[in-house]
């Protein structure tokens, strides 16, 4: 890209920033009051935390599709790398290995806590899954866990379990008239079931985004 085109692009970027800042400053107040609506329906959502209620009850199908998107990204990555055998883990620092070994039980405990806490305070399947994935990446970097080769049957099941559980619940509830409309009495249990499946699958998917790719092809 030559200097003129570069200058013009930077100029357009500055103009975009100024225009957006002006638009934000002039923004009228929201026409609908969503926090009020959420608070109003929170009692029948099955959970006490509004963000979890929105994620898994009021806008559950967004989350369902999101998990599908994550799976799709992982599948595409696997297609790209063509299922070559993984390279053995490199020899790593014993101090890092010791630390990773000590940290792992705490990481799993933390993920379990976050999953449970999602019902009444900030937390939930996404945070718990991210913590699990971070644990797997830490193990790989410490040389305790080899990079993953093409997934076997068990790993495939783990990767898709969250999505399948979510889909099964959605299909079972179709009789209610709307997609993912839980009966208020069993909403809490269903959300916990979905979140438990999601935690495992999201942890594996996010870890897979790193572990399936790392170590291959120097």
């Amino acid at each position: 890209m030559n200097r003129l085109a570069r200058g013009v692009t930077v100029g357009v970027g500055v103009a975009l920033a100024v225009a957006l800042v002006v638009a934000l400053l002039e923004l009228p107040a929201a026409a609908i009051h969503l926090p009020g609506t959420v608070a109003q329906h929170l009692a029948q959502s099955g959970v006490e935390h509004p963000v979890t209620a929105v994620l898994l009850n009021f806008r559950g199908w967004d989350t369902l599709l999101e998990v599908a998107v994550l799976l799709l990204a992982l599948l595409t990555l696997l297609t790209l790398s063509g299922g070559q055998a993984a390279v053995a883990a490199v020899e790593a620092d014993p101090l890092l290995q010791g630390l990773a070994r000590k940290a792992l039980p705490l990481i799993i405990l933390m993920a379990g806590y976050l999953l449970w806490a999602g019902a009444h305070r900030p937390g939930g399947a996404f945070q718990a899954g991210a913590v699990l994935a971070a644990g797997a990446v830490l193990l790989q970097l410490a040389g305790l866990l080899p990079a993953w080769a093409a997934p076997g049957r068990l790993l495939r099941l783990g990767l898709t379990l969250g999505f399948l559980v979510f889909l099964a619940v959605a299909a079972a509830l179709l009789g209610q008239g709307a997609l993912l409309q839980y009966p208020p009495a069993s909403a809490g249990g269903l959300i916990l079931l979905i979140e438990a499946g999601l935690t495992l699958s999201l942890g594996l998917i996010l870890a897979g985004l790193f572990l399936f790719v790392t170590g291959r092809r120097a």
Partner: peptide, 10 residues
């Protein structure tokens, strides 16, 4: 507002 927060989390 919990709705945009959930969107950002996603």
């Amino acid at each position: 507002d919990p709705v945009p927060q959930a969107m950002v989390l996603t």
